[in-house]
């Protein structure tokens, strides 16, 4: 084999090795789970800190407006038990009481890793230099996950900090 013919071989290795690494990393990241934000609220009254499995009735309670209204129909809807919704497992994540607005979760990813459903969230906090209203908030997020081959669920923030875990 000539010197020139070895160059493509090296190139091939240079291509193959990163692909293998990415494959391995991909395996480590687990399989993607179908998940969606069902509720993202800044005033989830009664939300317990951490992760817990909830029902649709809980979601209605978390969403439930305490508005003493003059118009509209707040709080008069029947509980949601529509077909199809029951296919989702619901998980609420809360960090409890916060001193100002500007705190909230967003769903980044949901994966099945080693038989555990892992919800990866971004926990946003207000800009430290901003001026904030001094009202207490209770931000929470409710994530709907399609049922799958898992019994344990955990939620992590963007720094890998455990927000909570639950066995279903």
């Amino acid at each position: 084999m000539s010197k020139h013919s070895r160059i493509p071989t090296l190139l091939r290795w240079l291509i193959v090795i990163p692909l293998c690494l990415s494959y391995l990393i991909g395996c480590d990241r687990g399989l993607e789970l179908a998940a969606t934000e069902v509720l993202n609220n800044t005033n989830c009254k009664g939300a317990e800190e951490g992760l817990r499995k909830v029902s649709y009735a809980d979601v209605a309670r978390l969403r439930g407006s305490t508005l003493l209204s003059m118009t509209g129909s707040a709080g008069t809807a029947e509980p949601s038990t529509a077909a199809g919704k029951t296919q989702l497992l619901l998980f609420a994540v809360s960090q409890g009481r916060q001193p100002t607005p500007g705190y909230f979760f967003t769903l980044k990813d949901a994966r099945l890793k080693d038989g555990v459903a892992e919800l990866q969230l971004n926990w946003q906090t207000p800009d430290a230099e901003s001026v904030q209203a001094q009202v207490i908030t209770y931000p929470c997020i409710v994530i709907g996950v399609e049922a799958g081959e898992f019994r344990d669920v955990r939620a992590l923030d963007q720094d890998g900090e455990l927000l909570g875990e639950v066995r279903i």
Binding site: T66, L67, L68, S69, M70, T71, G72, A133, Q134, V135
Partner: peptide
């Protein structure tokens, strides 16, 4: 929807 509600805070 206009209405009334309870909030808490030093605000």
């Amino acid at each position: 929807q206009f209405g009334y509600a309870a909030l808490s805070g030093t605000s």
